[in-house]
Write a protein that binds this DNA or RNA. Structure first.
Lengths: 126, 126
DNA sequence: ACTTGATCTAGAGTTAACTCAAGATAATAC
DNA sequence: GTATTATCTTGAGTTAACTCTAGATCAAGT
């Protein structure tokens, strides 16, 4: 029962360095150790870690993830606060999506413009 | 005819430092100077700059923007290559959007979970 | 002409988020 | 029980993308 840091690095794709760094910085809750100080990750540690990775992927800065994790380790009485943070982040992500979609349109327009230029050049050569 | 670096900073929201940095690094084409070496931005410079900002916002790393700008300054015979790059970036952005939308769902699920926990707690207290 | 504010260059400093190094201890495989 | 491999800590190094500093020159208002 429990995984070593190497196994967790393997399954999450994070490096061992990064895992230790996350723990030191409070980006993830601290992990239990065995008698000689070696980290033993439980299944819940892995789950929290994976959720943290998702938050990171949505562009949440490490400092905010830290705040969230702080609430997490404080227990159930922080759940309402956590809901707030997640809903705020959801709005963030939603507006990121909207902006990216507008950039897709912009890329399309630019490509269209370039194609028009090419078409005109070919016409002239005929 | 032509804007100063300060005006361009104002309208783009980039700092003066950043504008000079972009030019030094080849992230934007170099700008004309007046007799005493002061940058005079033309309308086309502004347009290129704004397009570059968009590319940056889509997460294109500076090194790739540089490549694109390199093609740009080389003239029309690089248009096909530029189309390729932009279409590739469009795909990138599209998959970013997809991933972000899946994260929105994940955030929703987490919030839902938290709400269930809260609901159960209230029930117990009744 | 003089002052004030903008711009110039070269190069150093900053920030976020890792990433690596060194030296020591622990676990595992034979 | 020894060699190999993994893990530990502390602290330094790296990378991308700025951001700032200093000292000098330029431009605009009075």
């Amino acid at each position: 029962m429990g995984y070593t840091i190497g196994e967790i690095a393997e399954t999450t794709g994070l490096s061992i360095h990064t895992l230790r760094y996350y723990e030191n910085e409070g980006i993830m809750p601290s992990v239990k150790r065995n008698g000689s100080g070696i980290r033993i990750y439980e299944k819940t540690d892995l789950e929290v870690l994976q959720f943290i990775c998702c938050l990171k992927e949505t562009g949440m800065p490490v400092i905010d993830i830290k705040k969230f994790v702080n609430l997490l380790v404080q227990g159930d009485h922080t759940i309402e606060h956590r809901i707030d943070l997640l809903l705020k982040q959801k709005e963030n992500v939603q507006s990121q999506v909207n902006q990216l979609m507008s950039y897709i349109q912009m890329l399309d327009r630019k490509v269209q413009l370039y194609k028009t230029i090419l078409a005109n050049k070919n016409e002239c050569q005929e």
